[in-house]
């Protein structure tokens, strides 16, 4: 099992450290050819516009769609959740996404940085205590398709969801030191691809 973390911009190192602590081989992906030989790809938090432009410039859109079609699981956190979505609300004009997951995501849904927050979440399938959600200029998931399972909500908004071999989280499990969501991705999302 090998996991790739898209390393164009953003908090990719924290994902790598969390997977490595779980004993999983991890590679930072900066060029499309590095997508071969990985079982799952994480698109990390960062700025969705900046990551999207670099993805475009280096041919990542087609490469990720193709690898996903060939069985690579995909997890988007925060900016990554925007980049996997079918539909983005409040997008920058012309902002392109991978459009592989049947969700509509609202960008900067909670407001500006002064509205960034932490909250305890009841994350489906996780054992033990509540999961601490760290939301930074976060999006939320406004609509989900029929095949999508809602994994967590906060104040009436969907903040985590899963569709077959894809997962989207509006918050940042990689900033908490709690590896349970990463474990869930490996055991249930990657395993189903």
């Amino acid at each position: 099992m090998r996991i790739g973390v898209l390393g164009l911009q953003g908090a990719f190192r924290e994902h790598v450290m969390t997977f490595e602590a779980l004993g999983v081989a991890t590679v930072v992906v900066r060029l499309p050819e590095q997508l071969s030989d990985i079982n799952g790809l994480v698109i990390p938090g960062g700025e969705s516009t900046a990551i999207g432009k670099l993805m475009m410039a280096y041919g990542f859109y087609d490469a990720i769609r193709q690898q996903h079609g060939a069985g690579m699981a995909v997890w988007g956190t925060c900016a990554g959740a925007i980049l996997v979505a079918h539909e983005v609300l409040d997008a920058v004009p012309g902002q392109e996404t991978l459009g592989i997951m049947d969700v509509a995501v609202r960008r900067n849904a909670y407001g500006r940085q002064v509205d960034s927050f932490e909250a305890d979440l009841d994350f489906k399938h996780l054992e033990g205590d509540a999961f601490r959600g760290v939301f930074i200029r976060a999006p939320w998931i406004e609509r989900v398709g029929e095949e999508v399972e809602v994994l967590a909500e906060h104040d009436g908004h969907i903040v985590a969801a899963r569709e077959r071999d894809m997962m989207a989280t509006a918050f940042h499990p990689e900033l908490t030191g709690d590896p349970r969501v990463h474990r869930f991705f490996l055991d249930h999302v990657v395993a189903s691809s």
Binding site: L8, G10, F12, E14, Q113, F117, E118
Partner: peptide, 23 residues
């Protein structure tokens, strides 16, 4: 504390900087 959430924590402050990395 703001309703069911806590704003202005050190983790959300340093966290935004983490999101800007490589940029």
């Amino acid at each position: 504390d703001k309703g069911n959430a806590t704003i202005g924590t050190l983790r959300v402050k340093t966290g935004l900087a983490e999101m800007l990395k490589g940029g």
